[in-house]
Design a protein around this nucleic acid. Structure first.
Lengths: 72, 72
DNA sequence: AGAAATAGTGCATTAAAATGCTCTTTTTAA
DNA sequence: TTAAAAAGAGCATTTTAATGCACTATTTCT
């Protein structure tokens, strides 16, 4: 999942939940300015920031092997 | 996937690949100090740093919904 | 055990993330 | 079409990630 996709999935999930940036910022403890910057494609969030947002959005960050079992 | 698990999976994957921190640092373009800090559980890496490491390790970062289809 | 390789840490510096405030632009709704 | 709500952006400050260098601690060989 590339950077843009990660951003996009957060933004889409937030909108699906009908939550404003302001509310998500409050709920997650991430600064509003940070969230705005992040959703608008600027910036390079830290893992902590990502996880705070993911938590509130009911999402989970994971790191797994790319390749499929055999015959890639 | 919590912070510790993410770290652990990177470290384990690196060891599985028989690559030293030094080599991974060089291959990924992440500073050796940064990688050391990160693997030893200190710090809060940025998405970019995580992705650089994941790339070299053949891993992928993803963000997905936690809940299973129905009856959570 | 001793040497060599690998990993972890302290200290200092630089670059950038996080944040708040204010203002502009865009979207939404009456 | 206008007013209100929500999103995006500039500027400045504080905090902290990223980094290098040097040293210590561990692990891994022979």
């Amino acid at each position: 999942m590339h950077f843009e996709e990660l951003i996009k999935s957060i933004k889409e999930r937030r909108q699906m939940m009908q939550v404003t940036q302001e509310t998500l910022a409050e709920l997650s403890g991430v600064g509003l300015r940070t969230l705005k910057q992040f959703e608008s494609g600027k910036g390079n969030p830290t893992l902590q920031t990502l996880q705070k947002l993911a938590d509130v959005l009911g999402m989970e960050l994971s790191l797994r092997l790319k390749t499929i079992s055999r015959n890639p």
